[in-house]
Design a protein around this nucleic acid. Structure first.
Lengths: 168, 168
DNA sequence: ATGTCTATGGATATATTATATACACGGTTA
DNA sequence: TAACCGTGTATATAATATATCCATAGACAT
C-alpha cells in the first residue's frame, strides 16, 4: 500500500504554477525536466489534473499548463483523488458472509453467527472511518494555505519558462 | 494505493481463532479453505502474523495456529502493520529540494526559495499527519472490542476443525 | 485558411508488487 | 521414531506503476 509518486509531483507542479509570473502557461517539458521524470509520463499525470478541473491545458504554440482555479480552492484531497481516484483503498470483499455460513439450523449457532457477521462488518466500518480521517485532514489544507508564507498576489513571482529563476 | 486483501483475511482469521474451542490450534488448510485462498499464500500471510507475535505456530501433527496473546491486546493497527509493514505509505523523495535550487545568488530569490521549501515540506507534513490520523483510529480498536457482542469467555465457542460449525 | 507547436490518446514495454503454486527441509509432538 | 505441520526457497502469474513512442487533434499567430 504505497501512494503514487505522481501525487507529490502534482503538488510541486501546482506550487510552481501558483507562482508563475503573469499566470502564463508552462510547457510540459520544462516542468518534467525540473521534476526529473519522463515527459510522457508527466503528461499523463497532468491529464488527470486537467480532467479533475485543477489545471487548464492549452494545446498550441506558446501553450502549456496553468491553474484552472484559485489555489484557495484546491485542497490536498482534490489532488490526491485526481491521481489515486475517488474510490476507497479498502477493497471490501464480503469475506465474513462466506466464512460463517452454517449448514445446520440451530438457534444458538444462528446467534453466534450473527454476532460474528456484526464483528467482521465492524472491521470494515473502522477501516473506512480511518480512511475518512485521513481524507478529512487532506481536505483541510489548500495550496493557498501551504503558500501562506508567500505573498502570492505580490510581485515575488517566478517565470519557469526561463532557464534561470528570476524575480521581477 | 490499495490495501492488501491479506489484512482483511488476517482479521477474519483472528476472529475465528478467538472463538476456537479450548484454544486448540487450527491447521492452515482448514482456514485457507474457508477463506477461499491458496494454502501456500495463506501460510505466508500467517507467517507475518507469527513474526509480529500475534499468532503462535505449532509445527507438529495436531498442530496449526492459535492466538499468541489475548484479543484485548491485539489492535487493528497491529494487524495492519504486520501485513503492510511498519513504514509510511508516503515515499518521501526530497523533490522540493531539487526543484527550487537557484543558480544565482540574490537576496529576494533566496527568500522565495526558502518559502517554497517550507511549503513543499509542509505538504509532506500534512500527509504524514493524515496517515497518523488513519493509524490512530486503527490503534483504538482491538479484536476484543469488535467481539464485544459475544461472550468470548463463555461457552459459545466453535471448533473450526470440524467440518460443520458446532456449539458445545 | 494555413502552418506551427502543443496536449491528447493509443499501443506498447519495463519494473515492481501482489498473489499463487510446488517442494524440500526441519521441527514438534504423539 | 514416525507422522504431520509450518518454514524457506524458487518460481510463476496478474495487476499495477512507470515509461516511451508516435500519430492525431486542437488552439493560436499570422
Amino acid at each position: 500500500m504505497k501512494m503514487s509518486h505522481a501525487v507529490e509531483q502534482s503538488l510541486v507542479v501546482l506550487v510552481m504554477l501558483a507562482l508563475q509570473k503573469d499566470d502564463l502557461p508552462v510547457k510540459s517539458y520544462l516542468l518534467s525536466d525540473r521534476l526529473e521524470v519522463s515527459e510522457s509520463y508527466f503528461k499523463k499525470t497532468m491529464r488527470k489534473l486537467v480532467v479533475a478541473g485543477i489545471v487548464q491545458a492549452i494545446a498550441s504554440k506558446e501553450g502549456g499548463f496553468r491553474l484552472a482555479r484559485p489555489i484557495s480552492k484546491i485542497t490536498l484531497l482534490d489532488v490526491y483523488q485526481a491521481i489515486e481516484g475517488i474510490g476507497s483503498f479498502i477493497h471490501s470483499t464480503q469475506l465474513a458472509d462466506r466464512i460463517f455460513l452454517s449448514q445446520q439450523s440451530n438457534k444458538r449457532i444462528e446467534d453466534v453467527q450473527q454476532a460474528l457477521e456484526v464483528a467482521t462488518n465492524d472491521v470494515l466500518t473502522v477501516f473506512n472511518e480511518a480512511e475518512q480521517d485521513f481524507k478529512n485532514r487532506l481536505q483541510n489544507y489548500t495550496i493557498a494555505k501551504l503558500l501562506g508564507h508567500i505573498n502570492v498576489d505580490g510581485f515575488d513571482k517566478i517565470d519557469w519558462r526561463q532557464v534561470h529563476i528570476t524575480v521581477n
